[in-house]
Design a protein around this nucleic acid. Structure first.
Lengths: 164, 164
DNA sequence: AGAGTTCATATGCATGCGCTTACGATCTGC
DNA sequence: GCAGATCGTAAGCGCATGCATATGAACTCT
């Protein structure tokens, strides 16, 4: 399978014109997460907890399993996270009156406030980095990144099940 | 110096204009790695092994520890990887005549060939994704990404020790 | 009403990885 | 020539994660 079909794409012929995307993006992601960590620590949030806060606000979530899948966490592993968040009154976990097996998840006002504060701090740090890019590249980077992170082929949900 | 510019900064109270960078980049990195995986499997390479092949060619490496740090792997963990690559005649591991503790690492011709084949296949897949972006965004994305992945503040080497 | 399914939860297992220690061979400084 | 540092290698610990199973409550379909 070693077709060296060097049509457009990589440079025509030999050495690659750029490093692999993954080779740049994965370390970048690690660095960004490392940069977030102190902020999260300062607010007593794990990354999973922050993920939960982020996702809960965007879309009302009906079951914990759906939330787990949305943030790509293990269904059984977010339970402790939710326990903690609930105990700290950052989220609510009410049994669905229509289906008492499920727990309706929602942010409390305080949860929303914390979420906003943390996200503001994080994005402020990120902007400091983006500011080092030329404006044109920065905008292209952000647009390209947002486009790529919503590509369905790239962001495969678990095959088989629909979001209802 | 951290004053944000007039555009879509996040400091002034409102909803964020974009998701957190890490929230987009980390899943994107995962997806890219998942996309690479079949290619690597087809050639019997782990990600670490591929990392080694990539890095070995760019810069001559004198010690395994230096290589490990370069690819951000654990010093002790790449040993098995190197053993395998050497056995398959993809790399050479010669004792440095000047310092017989160290092992000079280099790619063999076959190693270089495999590296090229795998990288071509990987980048070809990546280009298929990038092709879905508008050309302007794609270029900005790539430029921004390359710029960010070389920012020293973002890509911290191990604190404390310098490359000597 | 009963079978099968879905949900939240608890638990256990295996894996991969970072970090630490140990050890023998070797190099460097004194 | 000896003490201490460095290199490669081996082994083990601990943590986070993914995957699987089990259980009890509740829901659905027939």
């Amino acid at each position: 399978m070693a077709e060296n079909t060097a049509d457009r794409g990589t440079t025509s012929g030999g050495r690659p014109a750029r490093p692999d995307l993954a080779a740049m993006i994965v370390p970048l992601g690690r660095a960004l997460m490392a940069a977030e960590q102190p902020v999260l620590d300062a607010h007593g949030l794990t990354m999973w907890a922050y993920s939960v806060l982020l996702h809960l606000d965007e879309t009302p979530i009906r079951t914990q399993a759906a939330l787990a899948e949305a943030i790509r966490a293990d269904k059984t592993r977010i339970i402790a996270v939710l326990d903690d968040l609930e105990e700290r009154k950052l989220i609510r976990r009410q049994p669905d009156p229509g289906d008492r097996r499920a727990r309706l998840l929602s942010l409390t006002g305080e949860g929303r406030r914390l979420r906003d504060a943390v996200q503001a701090a994080i994005q402020q740090g990120e902007e400091r980095l983006l500011a080092q890019l030329p404006a044109a590249d920065r905008n292209g980077f952000l647009r390209g990144l947002q486009a790529l992170s919503t590509l369905p082929e790239l962001m495969p949900r678990k095959p088989g099940r629909e979001t209802r």
